[in-house]
Amino acid sequence: MKPFAFSGDALQPELYRQAMQDVTCGGFVSFEGWVRNHNDGMEVRRLEYEAYERLGNAEGTRIVNAAITRFGVSRAACIHRTGALELGDMAVWVGVSAAHRDEAFAACRYIIDEVKQRVPIWKKEHYLNGDSGWVNCERCAGHDLKAG
């Protein structure tokens, strides 16, 4: 299993979990991100993810590899959906196996937090009232090109 990948089809957590199995490991932690029916006070009907996959694959792989080194876990991977998703669909899966649970929890948390901040994926929400919007991009005051 690659450290990081995008999938245009439904995620298959059972398959990914098998790839994390390792007899040196005493624990496995996973995180699943699901499509929920509300965000920021709006009722969400469905959403779309669009990714800049070439850079996203490189950045996602850097994140997962950094987690393995930093927390000393045995295996880790992350898969993110692209395309159209319905309520309840799985948007992202993160899995980590390690000798002990503490580093597995920490590495899993690190991966999902960094992926959300750094991997070029955009989410368009479609609302019950007929509106739609790109999350984090709309209703901003201007362009900010400063680094950091």
């Binding site: 800049y52 850079l55 993110h80 992202v92 901040q117 989410k123």
Partner: peptide, 10 residues
């Protein structure tokens, strides 16, 4: 070149 607006994965 690709310009990258604020991202929203997860």
């Amino acid at each position: 070149i690709v310009f990258i607006p604020p991202v929203a994965g997860g």
